[in-house]
Design a binder for these strands. Structure first.
Lengths: 109, 109
DNA sequence: ACAATGTACAACCATTTGGTTGTACATTGT
DNA sequence: ACAATGTACAACCAAATGGTTGTACATTGT
């Protein structure tokens, strides 16, 4: 678990901790959307939505590509999976606990 | 996706967005630890660690049980799995995108 | 050439976060 | 009875967060 990994974990979980950002991520995982198109869906300023997109982008959960004057955002499923695998690691720790308890119980003495 | 679900998602992802809290969660998933035992592991005040434990508890990722004057904290693997399933849902959205593209490509016309 | 569109970013503001110290209180051990 | 231990919580503080408005700038359409 190096430092960089923890930094990106911080960024990813933080990005996912806001419901507007999770909703944006759902939309861009389903297909490309321009920032303006996304902004139209929410009851807040364009700048606010643009910031949310930037947070998702910094966390690596979303990428943008230029198309004329539009910025098309797309969800990065690989990044989503990497978050899932962090949780798997946690579940693995728990399984270790259970395994140790089992070992104690079946120990012959 | 009701309101309460989004609230707990907010709380869980937020709780996971701090490396100290993820570390605490790892420890308590591996086995019960008192708050004081946990606090000893980190270079910060007892109160700070106690707050982190409270955040994890509020998010439902950890439960406490009293044992004399100690509070023994234990990780809730079910909660961890529920976070994982939220990510699965997101991945499902992405798979839907791919499926739609595939359908378009194999469409006969 | 110029207006309209799409984006980025700065400056600002209220609230939340992550830390601190100090205090209070219950349980335990002597 | 009293000291030590384990916990909770309030009050405080600096920094980050999530929102706003305003400005600047590139691209497109007429």
């Amino acid at each position: 678990m190096n430092e960089t990994t923890e930094d990106t974990a911080d960024a990813m979980f933080h990005a996912l901790s806001d419901r507007t950002r999770r909703d944006i991520l759902r939309r861009v995982l389903a297909g490309e959307h321009s920032v303006t198109t996304l902004a139209a869906k929410y009851d807040m300023s364009f700048a606010a939505v643009q910031k949310h997109v930037a947070v998702l982008e910094k966390a690596g959960l979303l990428t943008k590509r230029r198309n004329g004057r539009e910025q098309l955002a797309s969800g990065d499923v690989q990044a989503v999976r990497s978050v899932a695998s962090m949780l798997d690691e946690l579940e693995g720790v728990w399984r270790g606990r259970v395994a140790r308890i089992e070992a104690l119980l079946t120990e012959e003495n």
